[in-house]
């Protein structure tokens, strides 16, 4: 067992990356009722684009941007055929996309290193002379910077007329259309944005881990993200992030359980089985999640919440 603090910090970094995935799924599912069951595909695209570009020594800002753009574009392209149809068609298409993407990555060795993946991805921020632990802290700062940015974007969207349209579409597409909203465009736009955020998360993931391989991007990743949103509370961004922390904590503790108690179970199996049981239970008994969707009018909420936050950040920066 390595340094427990490192283990904890690693979990924190993971939770940050998954928090972004969870926020993006919340945008798609929580606000717009888009069943993206292929989250892992966009995460993977982001990670691979970042891996390839980082190895070519592009700076983080560039490859993170390209990774999100590519992921967003693929999301847009592949969702178009299914968006006009019912939710289940999108779900099926996306789950299939996840498999096909993995297939491509596995087979194109020249591009993506085949089954071995790509390794030797340099971290985004390289500062000379730091200890391992300090480097981890730098990583966490980077990841949480991106997470906060994503959170703010999602909150701004949720508390805007755009978000109101998304909620209208979620509850009743016909109503939205009858009152002049181009439902298809909104869905496509949201899906592209959600995919782009997943791509960014993928880029962070790649430079954090340092290697990518097809086996990191199993459908169980998608399922974990769904669990985060459903557990945390759909259409509640704070809930989505909270869900990410809970699920990551849950995963880690089930692994610890194995290490310390010595259960005669394979840790991965145990983890997946428990996760699956938990999701089924939540869907059964508390489909609205831990944090319920807040019903606040647009003129309240966001500014009230952001202003003191902004002030606090300002004083903190000054001091």
């Amino acid at each position: 067992m390595p340094d427990p603090l490192m283990y904890a910090l690693d979990a924190v970094a993971y939770a940050g990356i998954f928090g972004m995935l969870s926020l993006s799924l919340n945008l798609e599912y929580g606000y717009t009722n888009l069943a993206n069951f292929g989250k892992v595909a966009f995460f993977m695209v982001g990670a691979y684009v970042a891996a390839v570009m980082a190895r070519m020594k592009y700076p983080f800002a560039v490859y993170a941007l390209v990774a999100s753009l590519v992921a967003g574009f693929i999301g847009l392209l592949t969702s178009l055929p299914a968006l006009r149809l019912r939710e289940d068609f999108l779900a099926i298409t996306m789950i299939a996309l996840g498999e096909v993407m993995k297939l491509i990555v596995k087979n194109e060795e020249w591009l993506a290193g085949g089954v071995w993946g790509l390794s030797g991805i340099p971290p985004a921020v390289v500062v000379q002379g730091l200890s391992f632990r300090e480097r981890l802290l730098v990583q966490i700062a980077l990841i949480y910077g991106c997470l906060v940015a994503c959170y703010v974007v999602c909150e701004l969207i949720a508390k805007s007329p755009y978000g109101r349209v998304l909620k209208t579409i979620r509850e009743d597409e016909l109503l939205a259309a009858a009152y002049g909203k181009n439902v298809f465009r909104y869905k496509a736009c949201t899906f592209a944005l959600g995919s782009a955020v997943s791509g960014l998360a993928g880029a962070l993931f790649a430079q954090y881990i340092g290697t990518v391989s097809p086996y990191m991007f199993e459908p169980t990743v998608t399922f974990s993200v769904w669990m985060m949103v459903i557990l945390g509370g759909p259409a509640n961004n704070t809930g989505a992030v909270l869900g990410a922390f809970l699920v990551e904590g849950f995963h880690r503790s089930s692994r610890l359980l194995k290490d310390y108690i010595g259960l005669p179970l394979d840790p991965i199996n145990l983890q997946v089985m428990l996760t699956a049981l938990l999701v089924i239970t939540v869907v059964f008994y508390r489909p609205q999640g831990m944090l319920k969707e807040r019903i606040t009018p647009l003129d309240r909420g966001l500014l009230k919440k952001l202003k003191p936050m902004y002030r606090r950040v300002k004083t903190w920066v000054r001091s």
Partner: peptide, 27 residues
């Protein structure tokens, strides 16, 4: 057709096309 998870006010206001309904404007 009532959006249960919105206030009555928002239920009315959603009917009007609004410059804030574009993604860029929202952000």
């Amino acid at each position: 057709k009532i959006i249960q998870k919105m206030t009555v006010l928002d239920n009315v206001m959603l009917a009007v096309r609004n410059p804030g309904e574009s993604l860029l404007a929202a952000l």
